[in-house]
Design a protein around this nucleic acid. Structure first.
Ligand SMILES: [Mn+2]
Ligand SMILES: [Mn+2]
Ligand SMILES: [Zn+2]
Ligand SMILES: [Zn+2]
Lengths: 124, 124
DNA sequence: CTATTAATGCAACATAGTTGCGTTTATAAA
DNA sequence: TTTATAAACGCAACTATGTTGCATTAATAG
């Protein structure tokens, strides 16, 4: 994995962001630093390295946020909730909120996507 | 709300389906009965009437499934889990699986999207 | 410094979903 | 039964999101 300018900038952007970002939001904030396609590819790379994680927002749009205890070795574990505020539009990780649930016999879970929408504390 | 052919067929299709359907899957199964745009519009109408409910699948694609205790009066309540089998591709409602979780103070939840992916009992 | 190949840019494509507008048709009133 | 009305529809055009192939550029190992 080469340490390119695009990679550095995008990593910086996401790890310092308070909110989760979509590829198009990343592209906008980079303001022409690199091509749209490169944004997608770099985000994919960063995810493989365990630096960021992705999830599908309530509306179906892909979002990325930084990881806290992941790496290429330690596989991603992101069963935590994500919250989408309908007022400010912010989408944030709720790292400490993990849903508990009981599946019927026979289901084997690989991935959990738990997304909430509503009003965040800032907008309340 | 007028009782059109397209509406009847689409309602039939979804309420008798064992799995949740995306607009394009509905379109395919209708085999040219109506326009693609009409599919989207009818699905929206059926949802407003409390006949079907929608959710965002793990991959971000919209899915619809029939409701069991909803109506225009009784608002939608669909906090139940949805399961996406990575082998057969089926997406199903797990009506009896509702996640429990504790949010930090100040969050007001409006919608819950809880989607699981993995292997279903049939494919195990 | 040079060779290798990962990473990039570009163009073209694919899929999902939306919008405006003129036409059709379900329904209720005459 | 006929007619008027607006809900529903079809079509075309558009936006957003994401992907792929291929030629070019540039990070890095030797
Ligand atoms: Mn997260
Ligand atoms: Mn359901
Ligand atoms: Zn907010
Ligand atoms: Zn299956």
């Amino acid at each position: 994995m080469r340490n390119t300018v695009a990679k550095q900038e995008i990593e910086q952007l996401i790890t310092t962001s308070e909110v989760a970002l979509s590829p198009s939001e990343v592209e906008t904030q980079l303001d022409g630093l690199c091509n749209r396609v490169t944004v997608y590819r770099v985000l994919e790379r960063l995810e493989k390295e365990g630096i960021i994680h992705k999830f599908t927002n309530v509306n179906g749009v892909l979002k990325y946020a930084s990881c806290h205890n992941c790496s290429t070795q330690n596989k991603h574990h992101h069963n935590h909730a994500h919250f989408n505020c309908v007022k400010c539009g912010d989408v944030t990780c709720l790292e400490n909120v993990e849903p508990s649930f009981n599946l019927p016999k026979g289901y084997k879970v690989a991935e959990v996507n738990f997304t909430l929408s509503g009003v965040c504390p800032k907008c309340k």
